[in-house]
Design a protein around this nucleic acid. Structure first.
Length: 346
DNA sequence: AACCCGGGGGA
DNA sequence: TCCCCAGGGTT
């Protein structure tokens, strides 16, 4: 008697033995806990997320706590995780839920996707993990697994390819155990069908994996087309007053490091112009060690300077987007990684 | 140094 | 509808 290979059965069987069941967001599961974890897990690996998740849930244990907190505090809990729009959107969505949707996450995929920060894949994950409904996800793990399983000959980020992968993902859904199945896919991609050195010998899908049959698993997924990245130059000014406080400016909500605190930044301006703009006296600046910060789309060459204001300067009061802060209190603030790195050098 | 990754917003 | 953007971590 011939049996047909069943993808979801194979995956679920593997999950029972080898899947992860002790992640923080798998304990006392609620839609809110699933939601926060899924947002943090966008672009970010489990091991990085865990400590942030613990701290975040301790401070914002439910939707009401998050909605009523101020955005700066939310961002300070996000600082270091990257992609700060996620934190802003999480806060914005919590407010929409708290004030307009009766305080609970909607149990409806269309409505979930209207909330800022929740796209199709995250909505699918919430529907499956929190509400046990039959929805597919298509995160990086699933894209990698399916690209290999079907030997997909194009970059999975390409819109046309992505569309096909969604269809595949939906076609493979089981008819029950949606939460387990969703977790199983993520676990397989994260722990076994990894980008480098996948453990094909222990893979439940090995017998029907097209890439494995071709003996070229590591050629999938096909890479993103390359682009050359521009290098940008920027100067940062570390201004210290007589109270050993540092001047930080809040960046605009849009763009790089939106809403986070940074050193005053300039590119070509004269020091005099910069001081003028900052309403501080022109003082000799000392050059500090430069360093580079790399993004996917560009590189940033950062040249910091330090300026110590003399006793004659009386501190101008803080404004909403401008603050004088003691080094030891700086940890409380939402700072991008290279700012934190420079602070640690001071 | 190259590569990875969900969603928003503008072209 | 497509392309660009964003940031820290891993390899």
């Amino acid at each position: 008697m011939m049996t047909i290979f069943n993808f979801s059965d194979a995956l679920l069987g593997w999950y029972e033995k080898h899947g992860r069941k002790d992640l923080p967001w798998q304990q006392s599961v609620t839609p809110y806990r699933v939601w926060v974890s899924e947002i943090m897990l966008q672009q970010t690996q489990v091991s990085t997320v865990i400590p942030y998740y613990q701290r975040f849930m301790q401070r914002f244990p439910d939707i009401a706590a998050l909605a009523t907190a101020n955005l700066d505090e939310v961002l300070s809990y996000w600082a270091g995780l990257g992609y700060y729009a996620r934190g802003r959107n999480l806060h914005k969505s919590a407010n929409i839920i708290h004030h307009q949707l009766g305080g609970e996450l909607p149990e409806d995929i269309e409505q979930l996707q209207t909330l800022p920060g929740i796209g199709r894949s995250t909505a699918g994950a919430i529907m499956a993990l929190a509400f046990h409904q039959r929805y597919a996800i298509l995160d990086g793990n699933v894209k990698r697994v399916l690209s290999r399983f079907y030997a997909v000959e194009d970059w999975p980020g390409k819109p046309q390819v992505e569309k096909q992968l969604w269809l595949r993902a939906q076609a493979l859904l089981p008819d029950k155990d949606f939460a387990k199945y969703t977790q199983a896919q993520m676990d397989l991609g994260a722990t076994l069908c990894t980008r480098s050195r996948p453990d094909c010998q222990n893979c439940p899908l090995q017998t029907h994996c097209a890439a494995y049959a071709q003996n070229n698993v590591s050629d999938y997924p096909r890479p993103r087309p390359k682009k050359t990245v521009p290098v940008k130059q920027v100067q940062w000014l570390v201004v210290e007053n007589k109270h050993q406080e540092i001047l930080l400016l809040k960046r605009p909500a849009m763009g790089i490091w939106g809403g986070l605190w940074c050193f005053p930044e300039f590119t070509d301006s004269e020091l005099e112009t910069v001081c003028d703009r900052l309403e501080i006296p022109v003082t000799d600046a000392q050059i500090l060690a430069g360093f580079q910060h790399t993004f996917t789309h560009f590189k940033l060459n950062i040249q910091p300077f330090k300026m110590a204001l003399d006793d004659a300067f009386s501190v101008i009061e803080d404004k909403p987007d401008r603050i004088w802060v003691k080094i030891k209190d700086i940890e409380e603030l939402a700072l991008p990684a290279p700012v934190k790195a420079l602070v640690n050098q001071l």
